[in-house]
Amino acid sequence: MLSCREITELASDYLEGELPLGKRLFIRVHLWMCTHCQTYLAQLRKVIELLRRVPKEPPKEELLEILLPEFRRKHRGQA
């Protein structure tokens, strides 16, 4: 029987589907009975979901002013 503490250490691998079948089943049984660990897993999933939505700063305009002409030149040179 896995403890809650062990569940928190395995949670990330579990979500990645990286655990062997036996361990996965033990976790599933534990989760079935333990709402606290269900909550823990839901929180971890939420963190992962938020990470996918981390806002991205655009690059400085100067960078594109350097890169785009280079891209153009390169393409023309080989077209």
Binding site: S3, C4, T39, K46
Partner: peptide
């Protein structure tokens, strides 16, 4: 025994 005494609360 490694069981929650101060469990996480649902977000």
């Amino acid at each position: 025994r490694g069981m929650w005494t101060d469990p996480p609360r649902s977000w």
